[in-house]
């Protein structure tokens, strides 16, 4: 599928900032399931964007700009061709031992209620793959999608207790349970092409688990499926904190107002896709 993404993040400050420093994980990598045709990262003020790679192998940009800054617009835009790999991630250089993905984090700490839940969801399954599928459907079934119930600091346990949250909360619950079963699991941030609308106000998030003999496999508890060609994969880490598209600090500057606009769609005309491929 040919996917076009235009991801705009705008910060406004009522009192201008003296300096802004951001970490951007907004550049996708190629793997067997996605091919980056073109991609650019840009901002509307003078500043510096330096590309590096973090320890998880994500492309990380250090963005810095001098003030006074009353607003910054960060734009990530490009075309990607995706392929359905049934959720299996191949063709990606793995940088870190799989065992490291068993680490728990502040956001994914196991609690007795989550242990019970994991046990009930997976007790009839013998292999890791089936356990993950059971977890996937159990989380999808018991959690209610709610944009206003949680924030970026909500833990898996908190959202699980309220049975409400957004995609990242679902992913955190999956990670917590999978790791409890000793299955290495990681958080994935990215995009999802919806049928109904092409303008979104947030990216998407899901999880990947490591299954011996198969490798890393994606699980999206928010949709209850494994990722297909509608998914674009941006960054992975132990949890949201390590994979967040934008993480930043400002010096000075008050009254921050942030606005995200993601225009994501699949250009209908197959010729466009063809054009892109031969470019």
């Amino acid at each position: 599928m040919h996917i076009h993404i235009q991801h705009e993040t705008t910060y406004r400050y009522s009192t201008p900032a003296k300096h802004s420093f951001q970490h951007l994980r907004m550049t996708p990598r190629n793997f067997d399931g996605q091919h980056i045709v073109n991609w650019r990262l840009d901002m509307n003020i003078e500043g510096r964007l330096k590309e590096t790679e973090d320890s998880f192998g994500n492309i990380l940009h250090h963005m810095s700009a001098e003030g006074p800054i009353s607003s910054i617009k960060i734009l990530a835009e490009g075309d990607i061709i995706t392929f359905n790999t049934n959720g299996i991630i191949t063709g990606l250089a793995e940088k870190i031992p799989n065992i490291l993905y068993l680490r728990d984090t502040q956001l994914t700490r196991i609690q007795p209620e989550l242990i019970d839940f994991t046990y009930n969801a997976t007790r009839n399954e013998v292999n890791d793959l089936n356990k993950c599928h059971s977890l996937l459907s159990s989380i999808h079934d018991c959690m209610l999608f709610d944009n206003n119930a949680t924030t970026v600091t909500t833990t898996a346990y908190e959202s699980f207790s309220n049975k409400k949250g957004v995609c990242q909360d679902f992913a955190h619950i999956f990670l917590t349970c999978a790791r409890f079963l000793n299955i290495p699991a990681r958080y994935v941030s990215g995009y999802y092409v919806r049928n109904d609308i092409d303008r979104q106000t947030a990216g998407h998030a899901w999880a990947e688990a490591y299954i011996p003999d198969l490798g890393w496999i994606g699980f999206d508890p928010a949709h209850g499926i494994s990722p297909n060609e509608r998914y674009v994969r941006l960054a992975t880490a132990l949890d949201y904190n390590g994979a967040a598209p934008i993480k930043g600090t400002i010096v000075g500057g008050l009254g921050e107002d942030m606005n995200i606009s993601i225009h994501i769609f699949s250009p209908q005309d197959p010729k466009d896709t063809h054009q892109l491929l031969i470019q």
């Binding site: 320890s55 031992p97 068993l102 680490r103």
Partner: peptide
């Protein structure tokens, strides 16, 4: 490289799951 883990002297999870282990330092 983790030679000491590969040599089977220390279990991998004792290192990689250790709260004192810093993922950001891996490979640096």
């Amino acid at each position: 490289d983790g030679q000491i883990i590969k040599a089977g002297i220390i279990p991998a999870d004792l290192i990689y799951r250790n709260p004192g282990f810093c993922s950001e330092m891996f490979g640096r």
